[in-house]
Design a protein around this nucleic acid. Structure first.
Lengths: 200, 200, 200, 200
DNA sequence: GATGAATGAGACTTCATTCAT
DNA sequence: AATGAATGAAGTCTCATTCAT
């Protein structure tokens, strides 16, 4: 084959990654339906058949981005948990670490976050999973006697997810708050409510 | 028959309402893009030209539903506020009444709620407005000395919106909770957090 | 029936004439295809079914206007010919009288002229007839020895039609020239050409 | 044919040209509105999406034909002028050369001529331009003392345009006369009128 | 004489996707 | 690995025309 088929040193993997990145941006910006395959390839300076060399369909590339969101988020959060003094710390601390990790991932990957956490119908599933996990954690803490409450824990977990969702849009993506400070606020609110009189 | 200006009950108005209802259901279920005008009219046992007799475009009927969501929600909440002993009551009570009103409207109008609060890009605006209003109310309470807090009120407001959003999907639309009980939970959580040890 | 069915004293004939006039204006302005039945009836403050009470189709009302152009033009020209000292006069005089009559009709009936002389495919036929008639007249004059020429008379006739066509658009409808003065110019040009050094 | 720097013979350009030719024929025959994109592509043995690969819209392909009429006519006339002994010759000769060139272009390109000189609303503009140009030429001749007249030159020019218009339809497109002989007739008529007693 | 409501038919256009090279 | 060219399938919308009253 030699150099004949090559163009500007690009190769297959590069093209695929390029397409994924552009697609992520487009989907994040315009949503699934307003994103056209023709636009993606144009921005990548490629052609439509090339697109289908790497992805079975428009749906498929979208799904790939959704999956990468899920996988990378999981990895990132896992890694953060391990790095941060492991399983010790108070409930507040633990929640804070988790939230900070998630938010950090979100700000660093806004496009796939928009796709995987907001755009896709599977976002619902992601959120349900997240809520379940949170519920489990809370439940364990209660069982272990670390704190007690008269609020339904599932509701708390889902509320937390809702808070994350909304503040990600209004505070994080707008650059108004940083992951850590946002996590702080949320933990504070969640633990003590607005009637709190604690000092920081 | 008399009343020359109005043609009440004439078939035309009926057809329009019919189309609006079916469209609301379709949009709520499948989203804007997967909803086809052809499907709407088929379900209404009408034809496509008839659709365009009442709506300028698919976009237009969608917008009409969004607008009706906004207007009706506003009316409903306003009415609820007036009916409920007017401006009196503690902060908790006031929030609870407001939330209950909103949730009641949501359960009673799930389709346009999905459309106007979740589907449309304008939902963002709705939520921002809602958060602003809540922020204003909270701020006034603080200024009036009814309570004090060290949490940023805008963040609280936005969190509340996020909680509403999420619990509407998971608890309200699923039938797991009723408006009032849901409002109760939220107020509880928001005021005292999960560390609360208060008894009801 | 009494007065019950009546509306503002309008009756059938009136409505028909109204529709014809509005249609003439619309067709003249926008052409056949850009003229919509819905627009015509709206401007007439009537409804579409009413339109079909008087005309079998859009095509039909258009045809009616074309016919009325042909008939009225014929009448008008005939009348002019009779009124103007009948068959006497030089060739120049005769042509001038004929042209003035036609141009007068055109300025007074711009809408149906546009329709019947420019818009409709049948305009071709009208022009061919006109050219034939003119050719006949010229031929007779030559045969009667009133003048001689070495130009093909059919070509002259068709040229005259072309001149009329164009000057109607550029001079008559724009108000730059009056029928008589326009007829004058044309006769002058046609008889003597631009090399003419005759004085009026 | 020339090489023109284009992808000669490539299938894409061929398809575009094919579509243009068929479209020209269709438009010329049936007019803008009665010409359907579906018919054009069927005759080209292509499909509708292919049409939109080369033209943005039905309107656009029509405009492309109009533009090509204007450009090619201009080129052709320009070329003819240069080829024909340049600026010398009597007025009659000059007009004759110009008319012959135009008529030659017309017979050789009947379809785009019908479109650009008769069908499109822009034809009016073309004719006005033509008349202006002719007026300028005539005026110069008069100023240079080559001939004198008492007829308004703009009117003469517009008459000439009218004559061209009509004779193109009746003599040229029907094959009754050739460009040169037609130009001859017109010049004769225009210069001397029907009273001419000159011998050929 | 008139109309509110409805429709048959069809036009233009778009887009994801594939064929052949 | 890549592309020029093409298309199947479908969707939105328009308009002249009619039905039932």
């Amino acid at each position: 084959m030699g150099l004949r088929g090559r163009k500007k040193g690009s190769n297959g993997e590069e093209s695929k990654v390029l397409l994924l990145n552009i697609a992520a941006e487009e989907f994040a910006q315009k949503g699934y339906y307003e994103t056209k395959v023709s636009t993606i390839v144009k921005k990548a300076k490629l052609t439509q058949p090339t697109f289908y060399l790497y992805f079975q369909s428009k749906e498929a590339i979208f799904q790939e981005l959704v999956n990468s969101f899920r996988a990378e988020l999981f990895n990132f959060v896992e890694k953060s948990r391990l790095e941060s003094g492991l399983e010790i710390g108070s409930l507040a601390e633990k929640i804070k670490i988790g939230l900070t990790a998630i938010f950090s991932f979100f700000v660093e990957n806004p496009n796939i976050t928009k796709i995987g956490f907001f755009l896709t119908p599977q976002a619902e599933e992601v959120k349900v999973n997240l809520a379940t996990q949170i519920t489990d954690n809370l439940t364990k803490e209660v069982e272990d006697g670390y704190f007690q409450t008269n609020v339904d824990l599932r509701t708390v977990a889902e509320s937390l997810v809702g808070i994350m969702e909304r503040l990600t849009v209004t505070k994080l993506f707008t650059g108004i708050k940083e992951p850590e400070s946002l996590a702080d606020d949320i933990v504070n609110l969640l633990l003590f409510g607005i009637s709190s009189t604690t000092n920081e």
